[in-house]
Simulated assay, not measured.
Amino acid sequence: MRLTVVGCAGSYPGPDSPASCYLLEAAHQGRTYRLVIDLGNGALGVLQQYVALADIDAIAISHLHPDHYMDICGMYVYRKYVPGGPLPRIPLWGPSGSADRFAEAYGLPIDPGMTDELAVQTWVEGEPVNLGPFTVTPRLVDHPVQSYALRIEADGSVLTYSGDTGPTSALVEAADRADVFLCEASFTDDPDNPPHLHLTGTDAGAAATEAHVGRLLLTHVPTWTDHELVASEAKAAFAGPSELVEAGGVYEV
């Protein structure tokens, strides 16, 4: 698998990065299959630096906060109105209520909403989904809305994406012995951090240690958070290789 960090800013787009968006690519049936994970605000424009929008094969949405899905609106416009279109429906997996939320975000009638452009299907806890070369297993994690960590396997390699979550054993299980753990770290250590919302660098490092992952990639750090402190907290809690991702970063898994 090849992972490209399209956007990694936490909670809202930052000056150097869109909100959450990741491109996963792997060989499949003689070509490259492209899976987009999350499509937060600001991501659609930058995504086009790495892939033509018509060449995206599937989309996976971790949860329905705008910094993880709002640019679905632009994707809908592209697929509906591109010259020579409309394009065939693209598979999209997300939490329950995704199709209605997308329609509401663009001011469309719920029926049909965007369903002529997006083949929206709902994650089921622990039930694997096959998308080209990828097997994606969603695990429900700890966030104010229905939010999933995604364990993604292809050709013997494993990448786990945390989505947004507070500390939970489900995240550790999703990341078990993953080659790469792409994990949010929105907070620094502070007893006043709100519960059931996000991780600190320490939390991310502790989860990586417990899950015995190969490499920890820290993401979703808001602009207002001390990035270097998040990174140092993670390094203190995880002895393996770890780093903060940046928009444009590319990783082989």
Rank of each mutant, 00 (worst) to 15 (best):
Y148Q: 08
S169F: 03
Q146S: 10
G85Q: 07
Q121A: 06
G97A: 04
Y81W: 13
M70P: 00
A154H: 08
I90L: 14
N130Q: 15
V172F: 05
V77E: 13
T168N: 02
I90P: 07
R79N: 02
A174V: 03
H63F: 07
E153C: 13
L150S: 13
K80A: 15
R89I: 02
V136K: 00
L131A: 13
S98Y: 02
L171Q: 10
G84Q: 09
P138M: 05
P128T: 07
S157W: 09
R101C: 06
D164R: 04
I90Q: 03
Q121H: 03
A99E: 11
A103C: 09
P112W: 05
F134Y: 10
K80S: 15
T135P: 04
C183H: 03
D164V: 07
D67N: 13
S157I: 08
R79E: 01
E173S: 15
S162I: 09
R101E: 11
P112S: 01
D164A: 12
V129F: 13
H143R: 05
L182P: 04
L150T: 13
P133F: 11
D67R: 04
P91M: 10
A178H: 08
V172R: 06
E125C: 04
N130M: 06
G132K: 06
P109Y: 10
S157E: 15
L182I: 07
P112Q: 05
D100E: 12
S96R: 14
G85N: 03
G74T: 09
I110A: 11
L171M: 15
L92Y: 13
A178V: 04
I72C: 09
R79P: 04
A99F: 08
V77D: 12
G74L: 10
I110K: 12
T135R: 14
L171V: 05
A99D: 08
G97C: 12
A175N: 05
P133G: 07
L118E: 07
E117Q: 15
P83W: 12
P95Q: 09
Y76L: 11
G163I: 03
D142G: 00
T137C: 02
S157L: 14
V77M: 11
V145H: 00
V145T: 06
G74V: 09
F102R: 07
L131V: 05
R101Q: 10
T137P: 03
L171A: 14
N130P: 00
F134R: 01
P86F: 08
R89W: 00
S96K: 11
L87R: 13
P133S: 06
G107R: 11
D179M: 02
R177P: 02
A103H: 09
Y69C: 03
T160N: 04
G126A: 07
A149M: 12
Y78W: 04
T165R: 15
L131Y: 09
G126K: 09
Q121L: 04
L108Y: 02
Q146E: 14
C73S: 15
A174Y: 01
E184W: 00
Y148W: 11
L64W: 03
T122D: 14
D111A: 14
G132D: 03
T168Y: 00
Y78E: 01
P83F: 11
P128H: 03
L108H: 01
A174S: 06
D111Y: 12
V120R: 00
T115E: 15
D155A: 15
T115P: 09
D71T: 12
D142L: 12
L140M: 13
F134P: 01
G107L: 07
S157V: 11
C73R: 14
L87A: 08
L118D: 07
V120K: 00
D155L: 11
